[in-house]
């Protein structure tokens, strides 16, 4: 079944290294409009670096990244314009501590996109409503819980009306009981057809949200496929081991505790 949807992001032979350490080694990837891609893999496999490269936050050593046929290059003059099409959410809740919640959400639309203040605020409020935090509108970030902060961060990224959302382990620093409220927002976005690239360690979430799962190891895509097949019957030995290790780790640590 050929996918007719338009390709919005094209990564060709991407290479990224820190000194002698090659983190991404000739990676190719195509992302179509409306697709939700989940990237998983062992720590240090380059999945966070991949997202940072797509957003032009890392200098790359080879290959290229094309967003709507425009090259993403952290050093180029129009990088700020390109980044407006990419909404990134990091692991740490990185809200601006000196701005209220609504100011956090509207700052970029107002100063970057030069949209009228009233319009930006109205849209910001709609987004806060959507993530269930309109009542926190005038609070400061430190008054919010981790999960609430992360929902605001998502609203802040959405306020720029990005074509693609890049989510970098957005629940990794959260207390377990707050993970769900954040991931629900993402599931909602997926339902609406938002294009997303998600790096996560939450396997059941990955399974629920993904159109396509990409398993990354050693800077290569080792396996990719639809979640039903990947999680139940991975083709490669490495992916199988990875999914296995997941289960084993839990049992082992339990044994050690005793």
């Amino acid at each position: 079944m050929a996918d007719e949807r338009e390709i919005v992001l094209r990564i060709e032979n991407l290479t990224k290294s820190f000194g002698d350490n090659v983190v991404i080694d000739g990676l190719d990837l195509e992302v179509r409009a409306g697709e939700v891609i989940v990237v998983i893999g062992p720590s240090g496999c380059g999945k966070s670096t991949l997202l940072r490269c797509i957003n032009g936050l890392e200098e790359i050593q080879g290959g290229r990244i094309l967003l709507d046929d425009q090259e993403v290059d952290g050093r180029s003059k129009n990088i700020a314009q390109i980044r407006q099409k990419l909404g990134m959410v990091f692991q740490s809740y990185d809200l601006f501590p000196h701005k209220t919640i609504i100011e956090n959400v509207t700052l970029s639309p107002i100063v970057v996109q030069k949209r009228p203040k009233e319009e930006a605020i109205a849209e910001g409020e709609a987004l806060l409503e959507r993530v269930g935090l309109l009542d926190k509108r005038d609070d400061y970030p430190r008054q919010l819980s981790g999960g609430q902060k992360q929902r605001v961060t998502i609203a802040r990224a959405l306020a720029m009306q990005p074509e693609i959302m890049l989510l970098d382990e957005i629940t990794a620093a959260l207390d377990p009981e707050m993970v769900h409220e954040v991931l629900d927002v993402i599931l909602d976005l997926a339902r609406e057809g938002k294009t997303m690239i998600i790096v996560t360690h939450e396997m059941s979430f990955a399974r629920a949200v993904a159109d396509r799962v990409i398993f990354l190891e050693g800077g290569h895509i080792v396996e990719e496929g639809i979640p039903e097949l990947f999680f139940t019957n991975p083709k490669t030995e490495r992916a199988r081991e990875f999914l296995h290790t997941f289960e084993f780790t839990a049992v082992r640590s339990h044994t050690v505790e005793e």
Binding site: A80, R83, Q84, F90, S92, D94, F96, S108, V111, V112
Partner: peptide, 23 residues
């Protein structure tokens, strides 16, 4: 100021000057 503040402002499409001024 935490480096992540700069990165997240950049990823919202701000220029370096805007990041300095507003964030």
């Amino acid at each position: 100021v935490e480096p992540i503040q700069t990165e997240s402002a950049l990823s919202l499409g701000m220029t370096k000057a805007q990041v300095m001024r507003y964030v």
